[in-house]
Amino acid sequence: MNRAFAAPIHPDATLYGAPPWRFAGRSLTVLAECDGVAGLVPAPLKPVADVVRFSVHELQCDLGFGWDWAQRNPHRSQFREAVVGIAVEHEGRIGHWDPFLWTDGDAELAVGREMYGWPQRLGHMALTAPHPIRGLGVGDHVAGRVGRLTEGVFTCGVTLDREGEPDVPQPPFVGFYTERALPDPARRVLVRELFFSEMREVQVRGVYSGRATLELVAPELRALGPRRVLAGKVNAVAWVKDASIMVARIEKAF
């Protein structure tokens, strides 16, 4: 079967296949009260709080080719991401808006920008691994470091004080708003399309939380502050990403 879906249109070279995509991995997230949130959220979305999540993920994804393919091709299915996320709402539907993302995977970079509208950029990430025998537990420290090209982006960490979620309000991991911005070179217009994508079959396991640290380095992040670092957590997570709903579409000449 020819699985070619995205350029290059070749069954052995296409970067990714058609959705649904299946993800699994582990995450470090630090939650902080920040300034400048409203300035990072485009209309018609509205921020619902000034709490921003800073996450580093180590993930595996089948890229639309099935889980057997993911297991047999770790060089393509495994990657890392770092995300800055803001809780937003539109017409009563709450979701996450991610104004900044970094990844070290070419398929994630391509599908994020070409198909769904996540503003992926290349970066390099490091995340403390669980102990190979005993895993993670109370008293452990998990750190994440994010960089782009030769510069730092942000660093974060959490000392695990307890099992379970931190006592900080968080929107559920059920959906994301994204904006695809594609210049049309023939008509000389910029097409901006706002989507909502529901995350299906979400599973979260092995949650630990505790005191957290956060340092923002990249120029685009400095306006966020943060005012106060609230807490951090680590967990394993799995979900399925499929089709999206279009929320808005505009064209502007350039």
Rank of each mutant, 00 (worst) to 15 (best):
L182Y: 01
V174C: 06
A32E: 09
W67N: 15
H57C: 11
R53C: 05
P166K: 10
E114H: 10
G95R: 00
F79V: 11
A6W: 03
E89D: 07
A238T: 01
V88P: 05
D12C: 07
F79D: 09
V88G: 05
L40Y: 01
A18H: 09
V84Q: 06
Y208R: 15
R228W: 04
R205T: 13
G92H: 06
G135W: 03
V30I: 12
I86E: 08
A4R: 03
W97M: 06
V237C: 12
S27L: 09
Q78S: 11
P8T: 08
A49F: 00
T178Y: 02
R145Q: 13
A186D: 15
L122G: 15
Y208G: 02
A38F: 05
L59S: 13
V52A: 06
W118K: 03
V240Q: 14
T178S: 13
H96D: 05
T159L: 11
V56R: 04
Q170W: 03
P42D: 05
K252I: 03
V153Y: 05
L182P: 00
W102F: 02
W102G: 00
M1P: 12
V191P: 01
D12P: 02
A70G: 14
V138S: 12
V51I: 15
M199K: 00
L63Q: 13
V146T: 12
G164P: 10
T159Y: 08
T103Q: 12
V142H: 00
T14V: 15
L31E: 07
E151V: 08
R249T: 02
D161E: 15
I94C: 05
S77A: 15
R26P: 07
A243L: 09
F196T: 02
D62K: 05
V142T: 00
A143N: 07
V88E: 05
P171E: 03
A236E: 15
G95N: 04
P166Y: 04
D140F: 08
D242M: 10
D50L: 01
Q203E: 12
V111H: 10
Q170N: 09
A231D: 08
Q203G: 08
E81I: 01
Q203T: 12
S197R: 01
D167Q: 13
L127G: 12
A18G: 06
V247N: 02
P171S: 04
G139K: 10
G210Y: 01
T155F: 04
V158W: 00
L28E: 07
I9N: 11
L214N: 02
M125E: 13
R76P: 01
F79N: 07
V51S: 04
A248S: 08
R227Y: 01
R145E: 14
R211V: 09
N73D: 11
V111M: 14
N235K: 02
G66Q: 11
P99M: 03
G147M: 07
K241M: 10
P183W: 06
P183M: 09
R187K: 11
L45F: 02
F23H: 06
R162Q: 12
R187G: 13
I9A: 12
Y116A: 09
R93N: 09
L136T: 10
P183T: 02
R148N: 14
A7D: 14
V174T: 12
F154K: 04
G144T: 03
R3S: 14
